[in-house]
Amino acid sequence: MTSTRSLRVNRITCTGQGLCAELLPELIDLDEWGYPLLKDRAVPDQLRTHARQAVAACPRLALHTDRGRP
């Protein structure tokens, strides 16, 4: 369970709904058009649950966590 996770946004499917930034403000900001800005792609261990919730909440399924470092 020590493998690191990194965030990835599928830019084509993302429509800027903004749920991810509400659930994971530590790592995700929104730009002026409402699209996610990843402050840090690497997910720290203490944020892993939040990251998972953000991934599950995306109505477009555009947010992913990949195994391994970014």
Partner: peptide, 9 residues
């Protein structure tokens, strides 16, 4: 016109 940051930015 697929990705928001490009389409709008």
């Amino acid at each position: 016109r697929q990705c928001g940051p490009c389409h709008l930015g």
